[in-house]
Write a protein that binds this DNA or RNA. Sequence first.
DNA 1: GCGACAG
DNA 2: ATCTTGTCGC
Length: 219
Amino acid sequence: MPALPTTAEEAVALQRALRHQVEVSPGPTNPRTVAGLDVAYADGSDRVAAAVVVLDAGNLLPVQQATATGLATFPYVPGLFAFRELPTLLEALAQLTVTPDVLVCDGQGLAHPERFGLACHVGLETGLPTIGVAKTLFIGEYEEPGDQRGDWSPLTDGGEVIGRVLRTRAGVKPVFVSVGHRFDLDSATELTLALTPRYRLPETTRAADQLSRLALRAG
DNA sequence: GCGACAG
DNA sequence: ATCTTGTCGC
């Protein structure tokens, strides 16, 4: 079983082999640190920059950060984009000298055709609790949630609940929350709200997004 | 067959 | 994802 699949067929086979290892359980009770992950892409080349920013879960201030740059070998294919971001993302994570209590990924977790989105993959690779907070819908159906912060509605696929559509700010487009690894939807929802005191997206995602763009220009 | 499709 | 700063409005 290759660690780095080359074709789409191999990639899907790997997802199907790994998905059964995902653990759905309550997230950490009192996480002290929460890390955000993101990847920025260059326009012309395949150069990518990954960033991870660890925040203090209490005051949301940065504790540590790391970046890594590389070349995206795998092409962008909906459902397989973890294979594009994962290698560089793991390089950045490896540079941390602190182990975050939770990882927040920019993309889906179980809300994925194979029930194995980026957040699940990152969770299994690191063994850490992870959730996915995506800006847009990938798969599933939902009713528009209420327009107050904290309002949510289930995201379902074929009758199965795969995530939640969560309003993090009143009157602003909702985000798509799903379990990555060692988390459940209640904990994931609670965490996402704790990370969005001011903006639609989690502070973790915003910090990682900014840093990844800087890293792309720098190196 | 046609359209949709995380980043 | 990326091309793109300041600016209008609640």
